[in-house]
């Protein structure tokens, strides 16, 4: 069943359907001002001429660099930034240079900042420990393209959930598996694929994160895989390609 799902997801990705939009472009910043973090990020798919609002991406673009946009059209008709709203959406910063581009607000309001739902609580206000029973459990951390960086208010949230579970469950073994999306895919007229080395870097980084959080290094096994296939997990928000770029954490009681 899982394999069928993966095939279905792959087919959608290859066709670039509206359910899974994917393109590379130079981002545009629109200087809307509804308070802190209220600026808009726009990205135009040059192949279709359609301008998307990618502001809801977890990690935002850099106006000096190309971005890989991966997203799905939102059901909303709201247009606070001047583009078709993508939600869910990811924007991975690529090395390619861009001429920075900023548009004025032009009567668009942007979005007033709201704390993302995936946020880590401060140490002085800890969440209660997860309830048992503490059977085998898996966690997933997803990454931006070719990056091992644990994304703020996303990966740290899931890492925090994992460590809370591990502290409560006191498992005997933790398997950390890093994946890289090394199978080339065509996006905006170019073939892109992740560096195979990034799978190992991701896995080792997550293992090191667990050690810093107090996990005994001896119970952690680290491995890595290339040519990753998609995985349908809540962490991916239904997006196909980002689910290939991940680390799986399998906790065995």
């Amino acid at each position: 069943m899982k394999a069928l799902l993966a095939l279905a997801l792959l087919a959608g990705a290859a066709q670039g359907t509206s359910d899974n939009i994917r393109f590379i472009t130079c981002p545009i910043y629109r200087d809307t001002d509804s308070g802190k973090k209220s600026g808009c990020w726009l990205a135009e798919d040059r192949a279709t001429g359609r301008r998307y609002d990618v502001s809801l991406s977890i990690a935002k673009p850099d106006w000096n660099h190309e971005v890989l946009v991966e997203g799905r059209r939102a059901a909303t008709k709201d247009n606070p930034c001047g583009g078709v709203v993508l939600d869910a959406v990811r924007t991975s910063i690529l090395p390619g240079d861009c001429t920075r581009q900023m548009l004025p607000a032009e009567n668009y309001t942007g979005r007033k900042f709201a704390l993302p739902r995936r946020n880590v609580r401060p140490i002085y206000d800890p969440a209660p420990p997860p309830a048992g029973p503490y059977g085998a459990k898996s966690f997933h951390l997803l990454f931006d393209f070719d990056q091992p960086f644990l994304i703020y208010q996303y990966d740290d949230y899931y890492l925090d959930q994992a460590i809370a579970w591990i502290r409560a469950a006191k498992p005997h073994a933790i398997m950390v598996t890093g994946y890289a999306a090394t199978t080339p895919t065509r996006v905006s007229g170019r073939m892109i694929a992740e560096d195979p080395a990034i799978a190992r870097i991701r896995a080792e980084r997550v293992a090191e994160a667990f050690v810093r959080l107090g996990v005994d290094r001896r119970i952690i096994t680290v491995r890595w895989r290339n040519a990753a296939t998609p995985l349908e997990v809540p962490e991916a928000d239904g997006l196909i390609e980002p689910s290939r770029r991940r680390v799986d954490i399998d906790v065995t009681p």
Partner: peptide, 8 residues
């Protein structure tokens, strides 16, 4: 991941 630039 705050973006470049970011208003704050």
């Amino acid at each position: 991941g705050f973006g470049n630039p970011v208003r704050n």
